[in-house]
Design a protein around this nucleic acid. Sequence first.
RNA 1: GCACAGGUGGCCGAGCGGUUAAUGGCAGCAGACUGUAAAUCUGCCGCUCCUUGGAGCUACGGAGGUUCGAAUCCUCCCCUGUGCA
Length: 374
Amino acid sequence: MVASAYESEVDLSAGLVEAMTTASSSTLDESSGAKAPLDQSASSARLKSCPDTDAEQQGSERRSREPLAVLLLGPTGSGKTALSLALGERFGGEVVSCDSVAVYRGMDLGSAKPTALERARLPHHLIDVADPDAPFTAGAYSRAARAALRGIAARGRLPIVTGGTGLYLRALTEGLFAGPQRQEALRARLKRSHEKHGKGWLHRVLQRLDAVSAERIHTNDAAKLMRAIEVCLTARRPMTQFLNDGERSRDPLTGFRLLRIGLNPMRAALYERLNARCAAMFAAGLVEETRGLLARYGPVKALDALGYRQARAVIEDALSVNEAIAAAQQGHRNYAKRQMTWFRREPEVHWLDGFGDMPETAQAAAALVAERIR
RNA sequence: GCACAGGUGGCCGAGCGGUUAAUGGCAGCAGACUGUAAAUCUGCCGCUCCUUGGAGCUACGGAGGUUCGAAUCCUCCCCUGUGCA
């Protein structure tokens, strides 16, 4: 039994080697030059981002003439929406949502996306840009958000990014390395083998392809192992190499001065708010919204998002409404905490202690913006 | 009142004489993260002390008892659930 498992592992790895040599280079997006339409702007950005020394010397002077972009970060429920509206109205801004759920049409209640009323106050971008059954990715976000930022700046207005999704925010500001996009067929194959061979198999495969990444990624983290394997096989070089290329391989956002403002309310107060907001979502009809989405799109991955997952459990009779509310509240609290872990690493953040809808906080944030806008 | 079933660390819940500070899970805290990220995953998690590794203390409703040794067995008491009255 052990022997046969090992044999098929060897078989499969032979298959992988074959895949490595036959993978078409057209599967590489950014690096191949075959870009999605939204990516056009990124190529010009990369030209500017070349770190030659002349540019370095003139940097500060040039930078002061670059348009400002405000990045609002903070956990769910910290009041980013309210603050974005306040700042936007005061400084002539437009909002760029950075939220992996708000991008989906129809997922309104559960994602706490700005209401129609709020959206009427200012232009909003990157909300309702995909259907729940059409997967949206960090790469797609980065391209679309950059296009939005440039459009806003071209109109002479202030872009205000409301960041809840750490990876998307990083993809926007730092760029993703020029690796391959998702390879559905490869993933399906890896998933099947993973199920067949069990824990540890993906890790062993990665060890063979890219020992450094294998060292870095935990054996149990199937999602990340899969992506690393996907990168190695499709790009035909180890993911580590992309990582080591650093700046040259990534694609940082340029042409903007960034002002990062972080909201960090007391955790106990935040949790109380999240509990109330979550109960309100259900009261407002989250289960019904979910039922409609389910009927239209089926049980797609997007409907695993917080709140929706619990609402589905109600529809499937696995939870009572009250149990679902409690579970969703718990989920939101956990999520808020994970978001803070991510944002604490973000560079150059001006942290404010309160909620974004508190006058003192709005005041302080406005002062930060005013200082830089001249 | 009688009969069963139970009372385990913040919660749920295993353990049913030694290898048990006590499996798991949840919560909590800290952290990682390049492609559906609101996902996925990791570490710590009774208290105190010293250097990794240890040392000491307190713990399985309460009080006694049996035993070299008890969360685990016995007695009484207290409490909870269910059934019968």
